[in-house]
Amino acid sequence: MLDITLSVLILIGALFTFIGSLGLARMPDFYTRLHGPTKATTLGVGSLLIASMIHFSSQGEGISFHEVLVTLFLFITAPVSAHLLSKAALHLRVKSLAAPPHEVEEADSGEGQ
């Protein structure tokens, strides 16, 4: 029973990690590529960490919960780096399928020069 739960969690995690990177590789422009890694990998690594938590807790040396720390850290940092990357791309005017709003360019040309 434990084995099955662990295997399912590991497979789900690895699958989401893979899909995240697949999105990075096959999406057409930067802004659509951004979505794959930031979303799919948080759940992917998250469920791998839950699997590892269950695995080490079942080893008999008391429960193991420091995986929560990595999960928390990833969930806090992933949106921050996504926001910064997106902001940097808007600043550099990276080619985009959807037109970015005008006010970004106006504010951007005023700031930082």
Partner: peptide
């Protein structure tokens, strides 16, 4: 709010206007 938007369905918060009144969000 910006972090929440980045974590949820196909949206990433991209830019906050300098006067902090508008948030630009990119949707997939």
């Amino acid at each position: 709010l910006a972090n929440t938007i980045s974590l949820t369905p196909g949206t990433v918060s991209s830019w906050l206007s300098p006067d902090r009144r508008r948030l630009i969000v990119q949707g997939l």
